[in-house]
Nucleic acid binder design. Structure first.
Lengths: 157, 157
DNA sequence: TTACTTCCTCAACTTTAGTTGAGGTCAAGC
DNA sequence: GCTTGACCTCAACTAAAGTTGAGGAAGTAA
């Protein structure tokens, strides 16, 4: 019952470098699909290898499986994944990636800039409370009564 | 029973912007410490705010709590966290951060470079199989029988 | 005195990304 | 005819980082 009708899970696992259980898992999550043979064994189209490669790249970019699934929903279930498809996915994800990189860079620079300072003020420290945080949500305490830098007053963080 | 003897959990939570349950959680995990008053209520030294700020920054850098705890183990439990301490932690974490940034950048460049290619070969694609992967582990299948780029052969991923 | 609020503990639940194990089927090799 | 290996399903477990809820104590306000 080996060949005829596509790749077995074992083959897919070995070729793609992931565990059989992970292949099952991706299928449950709708990221990949298979047919069944007479023995109820999964048979995968070779396309699945390309899809798993895409999943792995996206995961390394920090995209959660749920989003990867959404993004990949328009990929053909059986037919070859084309360069066109990959182009759409990868441009989408490079943007995401650029964001993550930019955020980490700001954090790194903030850390470097704060090394000598060490104020870590909840209110005034750029590092602790980056631009995207203050004023970003509408309600709740804002600790704005006094925004003079108080690097050495422990009571103001 | 309000003042006298340090900050209450509620105050710590509000000042630091995290939930009371998270303060409890950090304490269970050994990241912060408290004393108890007569009513068995937690009382925190103001230092705890600085520590929570550090925890949050480290988390944004992608450091898991377990490692943050390890790194912070040498911080004084009560006394003020000094600029010196912060210097040690932040230089340690900026290195980590630099690594993460570098990894993401390689991935981003790989993606950009692979947009027109779309080979995604498990064997030959720099994107799917970055330098740090091939030859990195000693045993198991390596798929090296034929390493010519086969961008259009679906059977080779 | 009653109600409200904050606090306490401990257990259970949540999400993400899987892994592990039990119990069972099926074809091949000796 | 039995064992081995690959496969099947389903349930339970893991780790991280918390959140939610039950059941109870203690201090404050009307």
């Amino acid at each position: 019952m080996k060949r005829r009708g596509g790749l077995t899970v074992g083959e897919v696992a070995e070729r793609s470098g992931i565990a059989v259980s992970a292949v099952h898992f991706y299928e449950r999550k709708g990221l990949i699909a298979s047919e069944r043979n007479d023995a109820n064994h999964r048979r995968y189209s070779p396309t699945v290898l390309r899809k798993i490669a895409i999943i792995q790249v996206a995961q390394r970019a920090g995209i959660p499986l749920r989003e990867i699934a959404d993004a990949m929903d328009f990929l053909p279930p059986e037919a070859k994944v084309t360069v066109k498809h990959w182009e759409m996915l990868s441009t989408r994800w490079t943007d995401e990636l650029d964001d993550r990189i930019a955020r980490l860079k700001r954090l790194r620079d903030g850390m470097a800039g704060c090394i000598g300072c060490g104020c870590l003020s909840m209110d005034t420290c750029k590092l602790v409370n980056p631009d995207d945080k203050i004023g970003a949500n509408g309600s709740g305490p804002r600790y704005l009564e006094d925004d003079a830098p108080l690097a050495d007053d422990p009571y103001r963080t």
